[in-house]
Design a protein around this nucleic acid. Structure first.
Lengths: 226, 226
DNA sequence: TTTTACACTTAACACTGTTAAGTATCGGAG
DNA sequence: CTCCGATACTTAACAGTGTTAAGTGTAAAA
């Protein structure tokens, strides 16, 4: 009889219900302000019911993060097709920043709160895999840029360069997120601002005698692999 | 009789005692993990005693932040004497990063956690004053660099450039702080790393035909005002 | 019909920041 | 010396948190 299958189906259904309710709450009020009791109330179960599906509060958030980060990864796979590593870097920067601003709570949890000796097996994201891990993607792209002689000769350390690029975009994103309502900083429009950040960083590492960076965004260069 | 003076003296003494104990705890285990009860236990008073000296837990941290940020401000005043705005920018970047890593909990509270419609009169830091507000300092320096024609012509918006520079250094600092123990990113030595970040950012905004950036750090240029 | 497995709830624990109400101390006034 | 009132502090509690041990009801299996 399919009773065990039905049970299983009901179980994943409730799990999904929890995740949906939790996502709505997290997005609305942020991680700290969401309580297990509120999630429970939203799905009309007791708070303890959640613990039958998730180890703890962090695990609920982790599950949401993973799901959304896989969407980012999907976009990265598209960007991976861009032939020119510099243009690829630029596009990855945009995608990353856009994702972060669309999912500020996830981003905050993953990149702005220090994790204790965090067991990595909890996360579905496979580090080092450039299709899933943003840092690995940048690292790979930088390595290619170095191999192609596109960077200034003093930047021969891919790890270092990747960290610089990541720092710039992450810095912009996180400042934007935490200090967006401060009256004493006159923020420029998002689009223009992140463009400038990426522009500055790329021209800071690029060989000065190379083709101007901007040119690669237009049609004078092969953009995607055949 | 000096009894009222003695009372007053005892009051500031206890206030100091609270701050000292709180600082030690905050530094050791971070803001979240410190409880009012633990601070109270450290000074051998009841938890409520703290509330006679500080409005709430945040106010205790705020007082510590202010005190330490004034030290950073002092260093900024020295750096303000550097004549060349580009070199000034570089030195401010180092000072900022060094400060952040020395006071990670303060930095986290001030630049990595979003403040609700925070009443600014609580803070002793005067925004817009370049001797106290790091952003104002950067803004002023960038304005001077623009006025002197040191930046690429497309970077004529001081706010935008200041935000770029701040993003880069803040990004480096905050990534370093939150992701320093991650096994999947091979961090380079701090000194070398922050140097590279500043180097890239500055050469990304600098006129390409200008004097090489590095030259200004050495003795071929007047460094301090007379 | 009884047993057993399972999903779920109730009630509680050990915390948190914060506060209302009570107490002890001590200088000054009568 | 006695009483008053201000001041500094403590006790006990509130309302909330994440989390868990123990109890309940249901439905399939024996």
């Amino acid at each position: 009889m399919g009773t065990v299958e039905r049970r299983e189906r009901e179980k994943v259904e409730l799990r999904k219900k929890i995740l949906d309710a939790a996502r709505a709450l997290f997005v609305e009020v942020g991680y700290e302000a969401v309580t297990m009791r509120k999630i429970a109330q939203a799905i009309e179960y007791s708070p303890t019911a959640i613990y039958l599906h998730f180890r703890d509060k962090k695990a609920v958030m982790q599950a949401l993060c993973d799901a959304d980060f896989l969407k980012l990864a999907k976009r990265f796979r598209k960007i991976a097709e861009v032939v020119d590593p510099i243009e690829r870097l630029r596009q990855a920067g945009y995608a990353y920043a856009e994702f972060a601003l669309r999912h500020p709570n996830h981003y905050r949890l993953m990149f702005m709160t220090p994790h204790p000796p965090h067991p990595p097996e909890d996360s579905a994201i496979e580090h080092g895999n450039r299709d899933q891990d943003a840092y690995a993607f940048v690292l790979w792209t930088v390595e290619e840029a170095i191999a192609l002689g596109r960077l200034r000769p003093e930047f021969d350390d891919a790890q270092l360069v990747a960290q610089i690029v990541w720092s710039a975009v992450h810095g912009w994103v996180s400042l934007r997120m935490t200090k967006c309502n401060e009256p004493w900083v006159d923020w420029r429009p998002q689009r223009k601002s992140i463009e400038a950040v990426i522009q500055v960083t790329i021209s800071g590492i690029l060989r000065t005698d190379a083709t101007p960076v901007v040119a690669w965004t237009t049609s004078n260069a092969p953009v995607r692999r055949a």
